[in-house]
Design a protein around this nucleic acid. Sequence first.
DNA 1: TATTTACCTATCAAGTCAATAGGATTAAAT
DNA 2: ATTTAATCCTATTGACTTGATAGGTAAATA
Lengths: 135, 135
Amino acid sequence: MISTKARYALRVMVDLIQHQEEGYVPLRKIANRQEISEKYLEIILKLLVKGNILQGLRGKGGGYMLIRKPEEYTVGEIIEITEGSLAPVACLEPNAKNCPRKGTCTTLSLWEKYNTLTHDFFYSITLDDLINGRF
Amino acid sequence: MISTKARYALRVMVDLIQHQEEGYVPLRKIANRQEISEKYLEIILKLLVKGNILQGLRGKGGGYMLIRKPEEYTVGEIIEITEGSLAPVACLEPNAKNCPRKGTCTTLSLWEKYNTLTHDFFYSITLDDLINGRF
DNA sequence: TATTTACCTATCAAGTCAATAGGATTAAAT
DNA sequence: ATTTAATCCTATTGACTTGATAGGTAAATA
């Protein structure tokens, strides 16, 4: 299940695109517009900065700004950066320990196929698609 | 993310299909074969009985048994019964309270489309498909 | 009546989620 | 230089979920 972190992150990205021309947008403005707690939004924006999705500038006149064009952001990477991974089951996560039942597991290929489906779906959609209702 | 409840449930269903001819199969046998704690498995089997997926019989010679043919069980219903729902986000869950941002939410149709994708995927696969590697 | 089995209620430790608190650092404006 | 506005950082909280355990009740068979 996709948590608020990723959902808020997407809304924030859309918000930033819609206010691109304003340069650096302070956290407070985004929080007010999106009705998200400022403190909680801090956590999300920090993740986005660390994930090279946004750039932050401190001090007066500072805030957050896009570093790419809207069509160069995929929904998938934003979810993965905020959520950690979009693997549907624990055994398909990046750092998963090798499952001893791997050879005999009758359900593994089910999860693998679903994993691919999910990955392809979210990585095929850009923020530009989102904004322009093209998906 | 799909938890062990649904994953175990699927493995248990496959196990029961593979031992169909034995009639009622006691919990202990399934637990041993699948290496799942008996007490935890109880919870899962109870859910399956309540969801009209399996039939249980108490007393000596009792256990659990299928009530349909393997091709009449979809993976989707088994996940939904054990997991509660397979909605990818909270706002699409069965008992979700009406979201005040519904009208303006730029991401809603994304989640709806993903929800449909997920639902169709899992409901298109039967246990018979699983066992015979047809998916 | 004894045994075997499913069923039921309650509890637990660990982890996650969403949010909060209080500051430290940086950069610009005055 | 000082104030102000903003990001950045570490830690903590309460509520909930997960995976599992404990102990007992009810039913069916031999």
